[in-house]
């Protein structure tokens, strides 16, 4: 749930989602769910010339499994907190019975 928790804090920030088919979509993160499905608003494809068919698309819902990267707005990330959250996650994972 770490990533879910993390992405929730990025709602209403602008992110760039790079898909596994090499399309990069920049847009405002509207929502994210536990599967890391992503909803973007006011999107813009980074290489618009290459993917003209997406030029008229205004918002997208991206299935989490097709996302390769999400480029984050660095200012919106609290790395120290994220580190701690990661530690917690790891600790809770470790403590869970296998």
């Amino acid at each position: 749930m770490l990533f879910f928790s993390f992405f929730k804090t990025l709602v209403d920030h602008e992110v760039t989602v790079e898909l596994k088919n090499d399309i990069s979509i920049k847009g405002t993160l509207k929502s994210v769910d536990q599967f890391l499905n992503i909803k973007l608003d006011d999107i813009q494809v980074v290489e618009e010339l290459k993917y003209p068919h997406l030029s008229s698309v205004k918002n997208v819902f991206i299935r989490g499994s097709v996302v390769r990267y999400v480029h984050l707005p660095g200012a919106a990330v609290d790395t120290a907190l994220l580190e701690d959250a990661t530690r917690r996650e790891a600790a809770s994972q470790a403590s869970k019975p296998r």
């Binding site: 749930m1 928790s5 993390f6 609290d78 907190l81 994220l82 701690d84 959250a85």
Partner: peptide, 28 residues
């Protein structure tokens, strides 16, 4: 269970599930 145990006796437990979000919001 998909969203976490709401009534977890220990609030920290639920906090740990959503730690970043919770604390971040507090910080913000």
């Amino acid at each position: 269970t998909a969203t976490g145990n709401v009534n977890e006796p220990d609030p920290d437990a639920s906090l740990s599930e959503d730690f970043y979000y919770q604390v971040y919001n507090q910080i913000e």
